[in-house]
Design a protein around this nucleic acid. Structure first.
Lengths: 188, 188
DNA sequence: AGGCTGATGTCAGCAACTGCCATCAATCTA
DNA sequence: TAGATTGATGGCAGTTGCTGACATCAGCCT
């Protein structure tokens, strides 16, 4: 057995989520999170760049999934269709996670401006990566940026809808529906 | 004459922009900004909620302009057209500002993640307000959100293009071109 | 057995931000 | 015109986010 309990990172994420939910983000200090996780404050900041980042631990993996989806799209697919494949891949991954935890997390994020800010930043990072992937496929700069950004908007709207909704909802379906509605919108 | 030089807020904005440009955002302390502006650090935080906010002083006014544009759009306009009117109003206002200052500001923002985060947050605020205005016009929730978000993406892309471009560029024209390209994209 | 590595602890310190009270020119009011 | 009021600022103490530097020690490698 190690000198310390394993998975301190995971414990910090759990401790942070529960404390943010209980007392609010502002009223929670990094030291309190660390204490609940059984480590020191310094260790918290070794694992997470700042207090907000602890809620976005899976962002890297999710981005990879999205990119894989986009890159695996058939060559015939236009930019929007390729982005839609990325969202399919994302919802596949997220659909497996516990909806109650996702909802709790979204509630916490929604209730604090700094956290909302960070969430937007994450989405913007995905969008930038997706746009780069689209350009790789030969899409021009502007179209790539717009398609990627629209995709992230659909993603955010659909994900929140899914987290708030009842059981049995299919995240993939929600995303596809939203996407279809956008297309109708642009034409009309 | 007052007890102090007038317009301390404006002096703080100028001082911050120049210091951020000279030494970088991270390497600049609030105390340094205050000193250059001839006030104390405490006064800085009375005028601006945090170190980033000082670069976004005109955001409220801009948002009002955009909303006015959207609300003044003919009833016959669809969501996209209405958003386009909002962007026209915004570019009218921004087109009058000094392009060199806008470029300096954008350069500073682009070189720091925290500032980019804040910029996205501002755009999201505009988007939420525009979406609300669209709903007022009878547009449904999802379409309103998407149209507003797309508008903000066009805005950001076009504004950066304008700031970087040479003299004689028309911000309004750039925005309209970008918008047209999006429509073509969604259809194809 | 001995050295290396990686995760953690410990501690000092800076800078962002806040609350509280004092100050005093301008302005209002009786 | 004397006095109260207001509003913007200064001054200062305190909390918290976050960082750098160094120490510790279990597990692994040789």
């Amino acid at each position: 057995m190690g000198r310390w309990e394993p998975d301190s990172r995971g414990r910090l994420q759990e401790a942070a989520l529960s404390l943010y939910a209980e007392r609010g983000f502002d009223q929670t200090t990094a030291a309190q999170i660390a204490e609940r996780a059984g480590v020191t404050e310094r260790t918290f900041f070794r694992h997470f760049a700042d207090k907000r980042e602890v809620l976005f631990g899976g962002a890297d993996i999710l981005q990879e999934r999205i990119l894989t989806g986009v890159n695996d799209a058939p060559k015939a697919d236009g930019p929007f269709d390729a982005v839609a494949r990325g969202l399919d891949a994302a919802s596949e991954m997220l659909g497996e996670s516990r909806r109650d935890l996702a909802l709790l997390r979204q509630t916490v994020i929604a209730s604090n401006p700094e956290l909302r800010e960070r969430e937007l930043a994450k989405l913007a990072t995905y969008a930038a990566a997706v746009a780069a992937a689209l350009r790789q496929r030969g899409v021009n700069e502007l179209q790539a940026t717009l398609a990627a950004q629209v995709g992230m908007t659909v993603f955010l709207v659909a994900f929140n809808q899914w987290a708030e909704g009842g059981d049995g909802q299919d995240l993939t379906l929600i995303m596809r529906t939203s996407f279809a509605e956008l297309r109708a919108l642009a034409v009309g």
